[in-house]
């Protein structure tokens, strides 16, 4: 009962926050009274609905989603595997520290521009996504694995618990929920990076390319914002879904 009440409170607060943001946005737009400087909520909303039914938008949207998903999947698998191996072998962990730091520190758009030289804009966007998201996943996965204390592992060793059961009975239950949540946050992060790199690489049939065209050819700031909002909504949706799945998994164990 307490949990249901807390969940309801959180939802209500989220809705209130979103409503306040939208109201403030519209007020600012009315004050500025220049759709180019601050597109109004109404014009952005109209654009969002309009573009939803346009085939070229759908193609761009799903093409970007696919690139983001590929970049996310490669990053997630690599990041988690690397974290697992680093947990097992200290020298790998030592190697990963500078490697991951360097990858994380390289300016994103510099990578995008460089990769465009040899790769197609589409592939370059995926590669940029990987260079940014993989270190994030690795760091998060590493923290999750570290949260499984040495004391538990000692207990397993003393009791002679076999390796497989250590993984399934100690690691997995501990990291399961945050790992599922990480799926959502990593995907929405991947989506954001993919779209940003598409703006630089000029990938065709892409949300980033559409933002670029809207900005520089169509001169339509409200379209830029509309496309951006669709990206944000998609990312939020991914995070919400994974959060719900994680919560359901948690409840299922309890049942």
């Amino acid at each position: 009962m307490k949990n249901r009440g807390t969940y309801l409170t959180k939802t209500v607060f989220s809705v209130i926050f979103i409503a306040i943001t939208l109201v403030v946005w519209q007020i600012v737009a009315l004050i500025v009274n220049d759709d180019f400087a601050v597109p109004s909520l109404l014009s952005v909303g109209a654009d969002m609905l309009k573009i939803f039914y346009v085939p070229s938008f759908s193609i761009a949207y799903f093409s970007t989603l696919l690139r983001a998903f590929i970049g996310f999947a490669l990053s997630f698998i690599t990041g988690v595997l690397l974290a697992v191996v680093a947990k097992k072998f200290a020298f790998i962990k030592g190697l990963c520290v500078p490697l991951v730091s360097v990858i994380r520190l390289i300016p994103t758009m510099a990578i995008a521009s460089l990769l465009c030289i040899t790769l197609s804009p589409s592939v370059a966007s995926v590669a940029v996504c990987f260079t940014v998201v993989m270190p994030y996943v690795y760091s998060s996965a590493q923290a999750m694995l570290e949260s499984v204390g040495d004391e538990l592992l000692e207990m397993a060793k003393v009791y002679g618990v076999p390796h497989g059961r250590v993984l399934s009975g100690i690691y997995l239950p501990t990291v399961k929920k945050p790992l599922v949540e990480l799926l959502g946050t990593a995907f929405s992060f991947a989506l954001k990076i993919t779209v940003s790199s598409e703006v630089v690489t000029g990938a065709l049939k892409s949300m980033g390319g559409l933002i670029n065209t809207a900005q520089n050819v169509y001169l339509s700031p409200s379209l830029v914002v509309a496309v951006t909002v669709w990206v944000v909504v998609t990312g939020l949706f991914a995070e919400l879904i994974t959060h719900l799945v994680a919560t359901l998994l948690d409840k299922r164990r309890r049942a």
Binding site: E151, L152, E154, M155, A156, V158, Y159, V161, R165, G169, I170, P173, T174, K176, K177, R253, R254
Partner: peptide, 24 residues
């Protein structure tokens, strides 16, 4: 040996039953 540690050393995300079945 069978051991009762100074710390509980239980897997918090598992149930009571699951913690016991984990080792035995």
């Amino acid at each position: 040996f069978s051991v009762v540690f100074q710390e509980d050393r239980l897997v918090e995300e598992l149930s009571v039953k699951e913690n016991i079945l984990l080792v035995c």
